[in-house]
Computed example of a mutant assay.
Amino acid sequence: MTRYESAIDLDAVEAIDVHVHIEVDGHGHASLPPDLAEAASRYFRTDGVNPDLDSVAEYYRERRMAAVVFTVDALTNLGHEPLSNADIAAGAARNNDVLIPFGSVDPGRPDAVDIARRLVEDSGVRGFKFHPTVQNFDPSDPAHFPLYEVIQDAGVPALFHTGQTGIGAGMRGGRGFRLALSNPMLLDVVAATFPDLQIIMAHPSVPWQDEALSVATHKHNTWIDLSGWSPKYFPAELVRYANSIVKDRVLFGSDFPLLTPDRWMRDAEAVGTFKPEVLPGIMKHNAARLLGLAPEAAS
């Protein structure tokens, strides 16, 4: 088994995108079942074409960027076989000049803790991605604490989807998905219980942006990524905090392929979202520190 080891040269990259989805594997298997994929394409107004991992690597290499890549394992809720975490880690190892692999473990699996441990030890994943709404779990439930303990002990971050999601949007009953599971306030319990676990709250957390900012202000083991929304539509309070109070724990993320880094940066520049002195941290240096690519430890 190929184990990932980073070969990213921070001086050679201009940004680190911490939120990039791998939606299809080398055999054409998709990360979402057909009904969800079709509904998501309508919601996000995409053509449904998704690049494989090596194509994603080339895309980011051309832009002098590094990217955190992952899938979402929601087997117990969706009944759909996820993409292989080990394959994603191996693909990132092939492209370790630009890619950083995160694993994804369905908390509903009875062997979730063992899977997480193996992904760290055998595959070398550098973090974990969770989507409480799609995976149908309450992240504050103590039943999941053993899983967080493994991640904390490994010294890698956990990235949680927060806020509204386009997955299931427009389907009958939203396909049964519950938005409230992605309220960032549920992560306050996790951050309090596991103070050494670095937690990334993904996306502007609409409609709970104030909750996310409250957690990030109070718990300094929490971070915010800015993926999934064009900066033109960021809530004003998020921009204000990103430029001041939590500027050292805000991360650039696109949500590729649904939102491209090209569009994100173009829109951020057009509206002057971030202060010039803050932007380098958001685009690269904060993520480098969090992911252990820079000598300074996460704080």
Rank of each mutant, 00 (worst) to 15 (best):
2 T>W: 09
4 Y>Q: 11
5 E>G: 09
9 D>H: 05
10 L>P: 12
18 V>C: 01
19 H>E: 02
21 H>W: 05
22 I>G: 01
24 V>Y: 00
26 G>V: 01
28 G>S: 10
31 S>W: 01
36 L>T: 04
36 L>H: 02
41 S>K: 10
42 R>K: 14
42 R>N: 06
46 T>V: 14
47 D>T: 07
50 N>C: 07
51 P>Y: 06
57 A>R: 08
58 E>M: 07
61 R>L: 03
64 R>F: 00
64 R>M: 00
69 V>G: 11
73 D>W: 01
74 A>K: 01
76 T>H: 06
77 N>L: 08
78 L>K: 01
80 H>P: 07
81 E>H: 05
82 P>D: 04
85 N>G: 15
88 I>P: 13
88 I>H: 11
89 A>I: 08
89 A>F: 06
90 A>I: 09
91 G>D: 10
101 P>Q: 07
113 V>R: 07
114 D>L: 11
119 L>D: 08
122 D>Q: 08
132 P>L: 02
133 T>M: 05
135 Q>A: 14
135 Q>P: 13
135 Q>H: 05
145 F>W: 14
145 F>R: 13
146 P>L: 09
148 Y>M: 08
150 V>L: 09
151 I>M: 11
152 Q>G: 06
152 Q>T: 10
157 P>W: 12
162 T>F: 04
166 G>I: 07
169 A>Q: 09
169 A>S: 12
170 G>Y: 05
173 G>D: 12
176 G>M: 04
179 L>C: 03
182 S>W: 03
183 N>Q: 12
184 P>N: 03
185 M>T: 07
189 V>H: 15
191 A>M: 15
196 D>I: 06
198 Q>C: 12
203 H>S: 04
208 W>K: 09
212 A>M: 15
215 V>A: 08
217 T>P: 05
217 T>F: 12
218 H>F: 13
219 K>Q: 13
222 T>Q: 14
222 T>I: 14
224 I>Q: 10
228 G>V: 03
228 G>Q: 03
229 W>Y: 13
232 K>Y: 12
235 P>D: 12
239 V>G: 04
240 R>I: 11
245 I>M: 08
247 K>C: 11
250 V>I: 11
251 L>P: 04
257 P>M: 05
258 L>Q: 05
261 P>I: 02
261 P>Q: 08
263 R>Q: 15
268 A>M: 05
274 F>V: 13
277 E>Q: 13
282 I>W: 00
283 M>R: 00
287 A>N: 03
289 R>A: 07
289 R>H: 04
289 R>I: 07
290 L>N: 06
293 L>F: 06
299 S>G: 10
299 S>Q: 08
